[in-house]
Design a protein around this nucleic acid. Structure first.
Length: 598
RNA sequence: CGGGGCGUAGCGCAGCCUGGUAGCGCACCUGCCUUGGGCGCAGGGGGUCACAGGUUCAAAUCCUGUCGCCCCGACCA
């Protein structure tokens, strides 16, 4: 039994001024955490106790499908050079040097180390499949840590990695994780949803995120209440109602004078057309490492065409560009490619790689083709007619612009952001867009690390084969923050009994009354014997102080030991509902067990 | 990295404009009192006013620089 009077639970009456979201305010006020630096927190008694309970659940469930490892947090540079990520990770990676001057980093994820182990000791297909996991600290020098424990620079992650002989095997490992993750989040008492996720720069592979809807989150999720479709906005698509085309006005593109009109809105209003009848032309520059000149970037113009009222989805564009970075064109680059200042850009008569599939003949020809701008048109423009676009001439726009007649995009791609109210891609029901917090992610990696780091085993036929990998993550602290975001009121928060630091706090209203204190101690001992985690609030404080603290600190039940003791009764209070039930002291084990689960 | 805000006692803040003994509430310690929703009374401890430099007889206050923290954006396997 823990006695509050002897514990360090530094509760605060007021939230720190710099806390914005509920979980941050309450974690500090309840004495769970204290800040050390931006995005770096100490976990105190109550916080650590809760996190350990979460970890117990994660471990128990993960042990049903995998084996627990513990990898180093400190990694040599060479390992990350092999996968190419020493460069890719940029400033997000914490880097340091040892006494000999050798470069090291703090692990932000562990694909490299896991693959290195697999590479050394996996020899045969007979050893597959394998699922290896660990629960460990991750270090990421985030550009902007924020919202208490929600985005931090050091945190606990359960990360697992699967190795399978083929894609069918990976499917099984992936499904196992899906099942286990659901079991974990269910047991932690979270309301969550799963969404299709952007697969990142590597493209193609399947990926699913576990999301908790919350304004404190950092992701946008589009979902359908009818058929259950849900996707991260980075990935979501939608059905659009047919847009009205303008009537043909003469033959072919026609210049119109639009003096000083630069924005879609201005031009649409001036010409009395809808933005849906306009083409939005974005001038971007793709960046790629120059193999001939290390450290320098090779550029290639990318022209993106969207319907006037749509916005570019950068994740989708990154995927379309095969994971390459991009940036907006500089003014002089726009002049060079379009021959016009920004504000009057359009696709007509701009030299770009056409989709007509030019035969790649001579070397010279290939070099020319590789230098041509890419023109990527959003699928919402497909089949449209008589649109308005910039004329690539200052103060002029073009009417009657029809795709495939007046310009030929390199490729048609889904590049736009889906928006609330648009039709679900599966069933057409209007989509809802909301804010969410990511608590887990399962991801089919494919052969990225097997290839870059040279992992192979012998198959049945004695032939070298690359195992296919998956990786799977859970943010341990995010389970706690999500739970608090979901379950709080003005006085504090309540956790599911499975993860709360204690099941119940026993509160004698006055410890100077020997009878009350003794009764409370007896109840606490009995409940502890029954299997509950019990906190006895034996502090010599007024009842109001103890009730306020009990409401604050996340414990799901409270037992008031007060004046009804003379009748042989105490009160059991459920924190979430504040429902109060009288229980008999003599039968407290049974009566409390009926309300809570032992 | 761009924009904004803030650094004064453990927490929340005032004082700064107009330079002159560093304050308030909560928390903390002692005593009395009180005991079902952050009691009351009395006494008390605690601060290099983020740091460095400058101006001045005198700097929390004015000037310059640096650092830290928060928010918005950019960024984010």
């Amino acid at each position: 039994m823990h006695r509050w009077s002897q514990l360090f639970i530094p509760t605060l009456r007021e939230a720190p001024a710099d806390a914005e979201v509920a979980s941050h305010k309450f974690l500090v006020r309840a004495g769970y955490i204290r800040q050390l630096a931006a995005g770096i927190y100490s976990y105190l008694f109550m916080g650590q106790r809760t996190l350990l309970k979460i970890i117990d659940i994660v471990r128990e469930e993960m042990n049903t499908i995998g084996q627990e490892f513990l990898l180093p947090a400190l990694h040599p540079r060479e390992l990350w050079e092999e996968s190419g990520r020493w460069q890719v990770m940029g400033d997000t990676m914490f880097r340091l040097k040892d006494r000999k001057g050798a470069d090291l980093c703090l692990g932000m994820t562990h694909e490299e180390v896991m693959t290195q182990i697999a590479r050394k000791d996996l020899r045969s297909y007979k050893q597959l499949p394998q699922i290896w996991y660990q629960i460990q600290n991750k270090f990421r020098d985030e550009p902007r840590p924020k919202s208490g424990l929600i985005r931090v620079r050091q945190f606990t992650m359960k990360d697992s990695y699967s190795f399978d002989i083929d894609a069918a095997g990976l499917d099984v490992s992936y499904q196992k994780h899906d099942q286990v993750y659901r079991a974990i989040f269910d047991r932690c008492g979270l309301k969550y949803m799963t969404v299709e996720a952007h697969s990142g720069a590597m493209g193609g592979s399947q990926s699913q995120e576990f999301m908790v809807m919350s304004d404190a989150g950092e992701d946008m999720v589009a979902s359908c209440g009818m058929c259950g479709y849900a996707a991260n906005l980075e990935k979501a698509s939608s059905q659009l109602p047919a847009a009205q085309d303008l009537p043909e006005d003469g033959a072919g593109p026609k210049e119109v004078h639009t003096p000083g009109m630069k924005t879609i809105e201005e031009v649409a209003k001036f010409l009395d057309v809808s933005p849906t009848q306009k083409i939005k032309t974005l001038a971007l520059m793709q960046l790629e490492d120059d193999k001939k000149k290390p450290g320098e970037k090779k550029t290639r113009p990318v022209i993106v065409l969207l319907r006037g009222d749509h916005t570019l989805n950068e994740a989708k564009l990154t995927t379309a560009l095969g994971g390459k970075e991009f940036r907006p064109m500089h003014e002089e680059e726009i002049q060079r490619v379009f021959g016009s200042p920004a504000g009057y850009l359009g696709p007509v008569k701009v030299p770009a790689l056409s989709s007509a599939g030019e035969e790649i003949g001579s070397v010279t020809q290939r070099i020319i083709l590789e230098a041509l701008p890419l023109m990527l048109a959003d699928t919402a423009l497909k089949g449209r007619k008589n649109l308005v676009a910039g004329a690539n001439k200052e103060n002029y726009h073009l009417k009657n612009v029809t795709p495939l007649r007046d310009f030929h995009p390199t490729e048609w791609v889904d590049l736009r952001n889906a928006a609330a109210g648009e039709g679900c891609p599966n069933c057409g029901n209007p989509l809802v867009v909301g804010t969410a917090m990511e608590i887990g992610h399962i991801f089919k990696l494919g052969y990225k690390y097997s290839t870059s780091m040279g992992l192979s085993v012998l198959d049945k036929d004695g032939k070298e084969t690359k195992p296919i990998m998956g990786c799977y993550g859970i943010g341990v602290e995010r389970i706690l923050t999500a739970a608090i975001e979901q379950n709080n009121d003005k006085d504090g928060f309540w956790l599911s009994q499975t993860i709360a630091p204690f099941d119940v706090v026993v509160t004698p209203t006055n410890v100077t009354d020997a009878n009350l204190l003794r009764t409370a101690e007896e109840i606490a001992l009995k409940l502890e014997k029954t299997g509950f985690d019990v906190l006895l609030d034996d502090r010599d404080e007024r009842p109001g102080v103890k009730f306020k603290d009990a409401d604050l600190v996340g414990i799901p039940y409270r037992i008031n030991v007060g004046k009804k003791v003379t009748e042989g009764k105490v009160e059991v209070v459920t924190r979430s509902t504040r429902q109060t039930t009288d229980a008999s002291i003599a039968a407290i084990e049974a009566q409390f067990s009926e309300i809570a689960q032992a």
